[in-house]
Amino acid sequence: MTRLGRLLEKPWIWSFAGALLVWLAAIAFTRGYGAGGMVTAALSLAVFTVIVGIGQMFVITLGPGNVDLSLPASIGLASAVAMKVMGGNDAMVVVGLLAALGSGFLVGSFNYFLIRALRIPPIIATLSASFIIQSVDISYGRGLQIKPPPGFADFTNLQVLGIPVLAILTVLFALGAAVLLQRTIYGRQVLAIGQNIRAAGLAGVPVGRVRYLTYALCGTLGGLTGALLAGYFRGANVDIGNEYLLTSIAVVVIGGTSVAGGKANVPGIWGAALFLVLLLTMLNTFGVSAGVRLLLTGLIIVGVITAAGGPKSAR
């Protein structure tokens, strides 16, 4: 009983419960048909949300006002960079992946440069940056029709016993991120800055360097997602990252990370990502129109945030 009680206190349990609930609702509707396929599809799609969500989580943990709005643009650019560098050639996959990571890293560095040099809030800095990156992407990726190398496309779609390989790797990656956050000096410094930036600075935390690393990390993860998305959907696209503006922030909040900063939760990101993906699957199974789907997605997100937001004293 006490073990169950302790489990219920974990902030991430609710997002997994929500995911389970929408999945049950979906298979109840289909009378059990396609239950396994739904999980496989949800795992494959949740991977991308988890990777960007973890990047966004590190940024949001830095404290109020810290958020990366340039992720969609960064993902779009990296998808084009990856496809162009790979050029449909299996031998260039690693180089292309590195190029996409590099593109994301540069975007993150540019974001932090704007934050520091102009002394503006990260929201405005990353927003301005995203305008520019979007234009770079549109003119760089114009008419880009390059397919991903067959080996890379197959790899992103590979499954073992119905479980996508990418999902297994992303679970390991999330474990790594949790260790980075809770067990390394860097992670503890991120949390310290989020709890009280002044106190952290006075205690000797190199605030500037840690913040820079965090924005660069988030950008790099955006780059990785861009390359993987282009492989999974067999081609780059300017709009490929658009949906990750909402989802990257939503999974962080639904997953139990504090928006006020200083308190992060990695497992919750997986739960929240599965919840959002399965929610869309469920609405698709119900066969609702695009308008109703958007409406319900919005309402459910606002509802979940309201429920998860917690009372004022939580701050």
Partner: peptide, 19 residues
């Protein structure tokens, strides 16, 4: 509820677009 306005309004943007 002391909610982050960014998330609430992002969610609402879907609601308005759907409507």
């Amino acid at each position: 509820r002391n909610l982050p306005s960014i998330v609430v309004t992002l969610g609402m943007s879907f609601v308005w677009q759907g409507l």
